[in-house]
């Protein structure tokens, strides 16, 4: 294994998304993963593009944005270190729904989504382990989004 592979494996073993995954499952991820430094302002992906990667954010912050004519890019969510960006790679039509931009200098582990999907098909145990984790992320994000929808800071006048 190269130094980079060691580094990837270490990062995956400590990242919140994968840290309690079975070692053999993690090793499969390592084969299709790479580390990337993402300077602030970099667009990771744009709305409508094919969703080709799962991003595990190691350091920094990623803004999830939506472009609104007349308003520009509205930030609808932010992803922090030890969280994951996106799950559109898991569900057809495999297209990103929002823009993602590095809000600060960030470091990610990028995992090839097509490979992930194939692995999941071949090995149901691996597929289930992956699904459970993605479901947990989606649950947390959904609850957070709904809490913001409740607009608790609004008044009856606004």
């Amino acid at each position: 294994m190269t130094t980079t592979t060691h580094e990837v494996r270490d990062l995956l073993r400590s990242h919140c998304f994968t840290r309690d995954m079975a070692h053999e499952h993690v090793d499969r991820l390592v084969e299709h993963a790479e580390i990337a430094q993402v300077p602030a302002g970099t667009i990771l992906f744009r709305e409508g593009e094919p969703a080709q990667d799962l991003y595990l954010l190691v350091e920094g912050r990623v803004s999830i944005e939506m472009h609104v004519p007349g308003r520009g890019a509205q930030v609808v969510d932010t992803v922090e270190a030890c969280e994951t960006v996106g799950w559109s790679w898991l569900v057809s039509p495999y297209r990103w729904f929002f823009d993602a931009r590095a809000a600060t200098d960030s470091r990610v582990v990028r995992v090839d989504a097509a490979a992930l999907r194939a692995l999941a098909e071949d090995d149901p145990a691996f597929g289930y382990a992956l699904m459970r984790r993605v479901a947990a992320v989606m649950l947390e994000r959904m609850q957070a989004a709904r809490l913001r929808l409740a607009d608790v800071y609004g008044t009856s006048q606004s």
Partner: peptide
């Protein structure tokens, strides 16, 4: 600090303040 809605150029956190507690 976190906000419910981030305007363009907002580089801070977005989310309800509960999301700041675990970390």
């Amino acid at each position: 600090v976190t906000v419910d809605y981030g305007p363009p150029q907002w580089r801070g956190k977005v989310g309800l303040v509960t999301s700041l507690i675990p970390r």
